[in-house]
């Protein structure tokens, strides 16, 4: 079953493009990554799903219900962490969290305490005394305290130190194992790589690709580093399936997607000093999506 189904969703802010014909779906129980550079339309998509903004055209359903029409029902089971966390400044952390909890039925208030302990958050501080990272923690507790079935995270790790990121990922994994579906938006690919099973890549307001991370990494792409003795003939390696081709003195780097034997054929008769074949990081795979196409 699909928890989120987005169908040709388009949002224009006046004449300014937000997103265009975005379609993808998130299955129950998965951690779905949503990747793209800043301004690509990640937040616009998410804020439409939460009916904070209204789509220009297209539609989206969550738990099988239209996200605008049944927004209030749907949101009962959604936990949301906005990319920029702001709360009522003059309130204490505890007050904000209790206020948040008061909107849900049957909230286990001890959960606030335990989540705060995991995230090392002081409940008695005032919001305006908190650092950015600590505000983010308030956001995390606030998003998880009602044990949502769908967790929507918009750039969740900004401001968190590596240790906290680690704890946060563990928390998300635990929730996921308990059955929660997660939509995880980020522009940092390595964190998506750590957590997600599938990803949608968004660029300039449109979805470029939806892929399974492991398939894409394990079976499709190889990262080659070849150190040559003597002059490198770059064109010799400019095959179909080769991307990110670059030369650094006598070393050649490229990514290859396809039948590995075609590279081996090309290597015959070449004089090599060293050769590395590695799993590429998602950064490297997706770099070409990030780079804006050059204008003709």
């Amino acid at each position: 079953m699909n928890v989120i189904e987005i169908n040709q969703l388009t949002k224009y802010y006046g004449k300014h493009r937000g997103i265009e014909n975005v379609s993808f779906s998130v299955e129950e129980g998965e951690i779905f990554g949503f990747i793209g550079p800043n301004g690509a339309g990640k937040s616009t998509t998410i804020r439409t799903l939460l009916s904070l903004i209204h789509p220009t055209s297209g539609s989206a359903t969550i738990f099988g219900k239209d996200c605008i029409k049944y927004g209030n029902e749907i949101r009962r089971d959604i936990g949301y962490l906005p990319s920029e966390v702001f709360y009522y400044e003059h309130m204490k952390v505890r007050e904000v969290l209790n206020y948040s909890a008061s909107f849900y039925d049957n909230v286990d208030y001890t959960r606030i305490q335990s989540l705060a302990e995991v995230m090392d958050l002081d409940l008695n501080k005032r919001i305006d005394d908190l650092s950015y990272g600590n505000k983010k923690k308030v956001g995390i507790v606030q998003g998880l305290l009602h044990e949502p079935k769908l967790i929507i995270l918009d750039e969740p790790t900004g401001g968190l130190d590596p240790l906290m990121q680690q704890k946060f990922f563990e928390l998300i994994r635990t929730e996921n194992q308990k059955g929660a579906t997660v939509l995880f938006s980020s522009h940092i690919l390595s964190e998506v790589q750590k957590l997600c099973s599938r990803v949608a890549i968004i660029k300039d307001g449109t979805i470029v690709q939806v892929e399974n991370i492991r398939d894409m990494q394990k079976h499709n792409y190889k990262k080659f580093t070849l150190e040559f003795k003597g002059v490198i003939d770059v064109h010799h390696f400019n095959l179909d399936g080769v991307t990110n081709l670059s030369v650094n003195e006598d070393t050649l780097h490229f990514l290859f997607k396809g039948d590995i034997n075609r590279i081996v054929e090309r290597l015959q008769g070449q004089s090599l000093l060293n050769m590395l074949v590695e799993e590429p990081s998602l950064e490297e795979i997706f770099m070409h999506y990030y780079q804006k196409e050059e204008q003709p």
Binding site: R47, L50, L52, G71, N72, E73, I74, R75, R76, I78, Y80, P82, E84, F86, Y87, Y88, E89, S100, F103, Y104, Q142
Partner: peptide, 17 residues
């Protein structure tokens, strides 16, 4: 104004509520 619209309007309530 205080940038907390995302907080309150993502709660399970209608806006009129």
């Amino acid at each position: 104004r205080d940038h907390c619209a995302d907080f309150i309007y993502t709660k399970p309530v209608h806006r009129f509520q």
